[in-house]
Nucleic acid binder design. Structure first.
Lengths: 343, 343
DNA sequence: GGAGTGGGTGGAAGCGCTCTCACGGCGTAC
DNA sequence: GTACGCCGTGAGAGCGCTTCCACCCACTCC
């Protein structure tokens, strides 16, 4: 005989009644069972099973003052979001790790500065315990906004100079770039060019810095700037070829631009890697492996970065959000050179 | 003087006190203000403003038994979310419309059949008021699972035959395909080939049906099958060329495959559109416009479909989820032929 | 053997909100 | 002038849960 009317879900009360214990004890068991003697705990678990009890999240939330949800804030300055495999992998990592922590992923899609109000209200409303955001452009007002809302936040990618000191997860852009350039130099290349990314994105800046770490006296004519798209890479390559026809290697700040460079190189009759060696960054598999020739590039563990963002956030959350001993140090993940045919 | 200790957020109680009304009246105002006289309502609104009051979602949820959240279920049978701009646009539409309805978007990333249990538990747990899912393969077990959980759900794309009758939003795949093929025929083409998509996806089936609607006695040799990827399109094109060297037009079931076809045609020295006219489907801007020559294709309002999914869901939700007079009829959105250079 | 100790258990308060219901005041009708 | 009805408002219950606190009992120690 069911102890509940068919329509509504069983409550903790029902579980307690069925197990012959108080609601308090039932609650203790449901939440891990610490401090409840074995036979009783088993009885409760049995009742939970039989009744198909699932805790009411709202009720729990109300008293614990924790929502069990984390916001993933997606700003959309351009349109490079979900279609960006990079981003997708990161979200997947986040999703997986959040699931492991029994937390929900609430997607907050920011429609532009006009939308900041809504976001602020939402974050300030205590709907989520924490937030995950991505650093995009230097002049983005979002980080400041998020910071003001006091919701513990972890960033993906090193925030620009303007932002307050916040915990973030990034890959070793600078070190990876150094490895790439050193590889090119090790191949005996003497005129190594660089196709840089946008000047207002830290990842691009760091990669350019890595290039200059190795080639500290590099010819300025050997650097051109793109915006991380295939076309911009092609344009930058054409520009470089015009300015420095004698170049014998290119380090592009990402795979997409490297693909664009490859196209131009092919069109101009330069053989890769014989005449010009090319190295990319990111190891976007669909791009790097499909390229002709397959792209030597710097791999980063994108999904791992997503997971790490969550772990970092959880640490902040568990430490009350202040700078305690377990305070949120940022994490830089190592990169790895993947050798294929292009260099 | 603040009526609340600095640490915690103001409650409705505080608002009521400040406005000099009862909690009940304050609540009425916060929820629209129906049945409250003007001066009082204004006083309450003022208090809300001054205190920066934001309703506690958990408390509200507890009594209304509504979560104010909608799950977006993303299954990942293969990796087709990967860089699928289609998907991104749909989610954007969903996000926007959900925001307009003051609902949250909870992302449920399904890791495969092994993950179904977790999803079922989550959906059954009353954490969300409804769900949005996407029909992928015919043999996907997810729809059945979702259906069993009793959570009102709207699908993106017509579910396969196996699924129960559920409300869905789709574009007019069949009609769009007819338009595309008619266009080709109108151009005077007499050997119109079709590169079909996966046989277990309704969108591919419907598009193939549209092709046959116009060319009901089409030569079977003029159809080859791909899997919606660029490479598969190229392979299918090569196959078609081998089987029917005299073909003078191709209708590909999506833009990606059309792009692959374009590549092969170019390699084989066939001029597009002079020798072979090509039409795609989807109007993925980045693909269709960047193609060489730019692709004539069938456009669908993807973001609009996302928005519509939400509206449909809201309708179901407001009607108690049963088949009432306002019951969930599915919606088929019109398509439109976009003429570019390839046909 | 009695008092002290401590862990296990239950009672009950209360999280912040919505909503039913009772009440009071005003307008209308006779 | 009195009776009736209706609209606006407030009191209060209760949503399902966690957790503080008091209580009880078994066990140990003097």
């Amino acid at each position: 005989m069911p102890e509940q009317p068919a329509g509504s879900r069983p409550t903790l009360e029902a579980v307690a009644a069925r197990a012959g214990v108080s609601r308090a004890t039932a609650s203790r068991v449901v939440n891990g069972g610490a401090g409840v003697r074995r036979p009783l705990a088993d009885k409760v678990r049995e009742a939970v099973e039989e009744l198909g009890y699932v805790p009411n999240h709202a009720a729990r939330s109300l008293v614990t003052r924790q929502s069990g949800a984390v916001a993933v804030i997606i700003a959309e300055p351009e349109f490079r979001i979900f279609s960006d495999p990079f981003f997708e992998q990161q979200v997947r990592g986040i999703s997986r790790e959040l699931t492991a922590h029994d937390s929900q992923l609430v997607l907050l899609w920011v429609e532009g500065p006009g939308d900041y109000d809504r976001i602020a209200r939402y974050l300030g409303g205590g709907h989520v315990d924490g937030a995950l955001a991505f650093s995009l452009h230097d002049d983005d007002g979002l980080p400041a906004l998020v910071h003001r809302s006091k919701v513990p936040t972890v960033y993906g990618g090193r925030p620009g100079a303007g932002a307050a000191a916040v915990p973030y997860v990034d890959c070793d852009n600078r070190g990876g770039a150094r490895t790439a350039v050193r590889h090119l130099v090790g191949l005996g290349r003497e005129r190594v060019a660089h196709i840089a990314g946008p000047a207002d994105q830290t990842s691009a800046i760091d990669r350019a810095d890595g290039y200059h770490d190795v080639l500290f006296d590099a010819d300025p004519a050997l650097t051109a700037r793109g915006d991380f798209t295939v076309d911009s890479g092609a344009r930058a390559m054409a520009e470089l070829l015009a300015r420095a026809p004698d170049l014998d290697a290119v380090f592009a700040a990402n795979d997409l631009m490297a693909a664009g460079a490859l196209r131009v190189l092919r069109e101009r009759g330069r053989r890769v890697p014989e005449d010009v060696a090319v190295v990319g960054f990111d190891d976007m598999v669909t791009v790097a492996e499909a390229a002709d020739p397959p792209l030597t590039t710097v791999r980063q563990d994108i999904e791992g970065m997503g997971r790490l963002m969550v772990r970092l956030l959880m640490r902040v959350l568990n430490h009350g959000g202040d700078r305690g001993p377990g305070a949120p140090a940022s994490v830089i993940m190592p990169t790895e050179l993947v050798r294929r045919a292009s260099a």
